[in-house]
């Protein structure tokens, strides 16, 4: 999933989508497309490398530093290579009340890794995040766009076993 190629470029479909996004802002305000484009790039490459950021800068005619500053501010962008599935679990108070610490403890022991680490097979990366706006449905983690809520050990087993298959 985390391919690094020397010639970074959006796939034709994503390029078309990028153009569409850029066109939705007023004239001269194309920098507004920066976050959506970074999401698009991460979707394609799995993470945002400096080359990817330079490419995004060139699409928007802005300086590369403007992209580095922004990408490093927001926590969703992976600035280093990650595993196939990045599991982002919520560590904030309400989720802890809902049993988060036990659930995440189980998750860690099941994967045999700690926060910030990737399994040796490159399948899973574990990332701690703050409140995901699903507190009453906690404990919660997110993998890509999908939310997994009301986590129990059984549920975690199911999810991980399913994702381990492919």
């Amino acid at each position: 999933m985390t391919e690094t190629t020397n010639t970074v470029a959006f796939t034709p479909e994503r390029l078309a989508k990028a153009q569409e996004i850029i066109a939705r802002y007023p004239d001269g305000k194309q920098k507004s497309a920066l976050l959506p484009l970074l999401h698009l790039a991460q979707e394609q490459y799995g993470w945002v490398s400096p080359e990817v950021m330079d490419y995004v800068a060139s699409l928007l005619s802005i300086l590369p530093i403007e992209v580095y500053e922004v990408a490093s501010f927001y926590t969703m962008f992976h600035l280093d290579p990650v595993g196939t599935h990045v599991i982002e679990y919520c560590r904030t108070g309400p989720c802890c009340l809902m049993g988060g610490e036990d659930a995440y403890g189980y998750l860690k022991s099941k994967l045999g890794i700690n926060t910030g680490e990737t399994t040796p097979d490159g399948k899973f990366t574990l990332k701690e995040v703050e409140c995901l706006a699903a507190c009453g449905w906690g404990p919660v983690f997110q993998i890509r766009e999908k939310y997994y809520m009301n986590l129990t050990n059984e549920k975690i087993d199911e999810i991980i076993d399913e994702l381990s298959k492919d």
Partner: peptide, 29 residues
Amino acid sequence: LELVVQPGGGAYICGEETALLESLEGKRG
């Protein structure tokens, strides 16, 4: 009227209205 849905990038501070506007302009929040 045109409606645009804009994604954030993972930053609570962008809920503060002026940070949100900065973010919407493609900047740090």
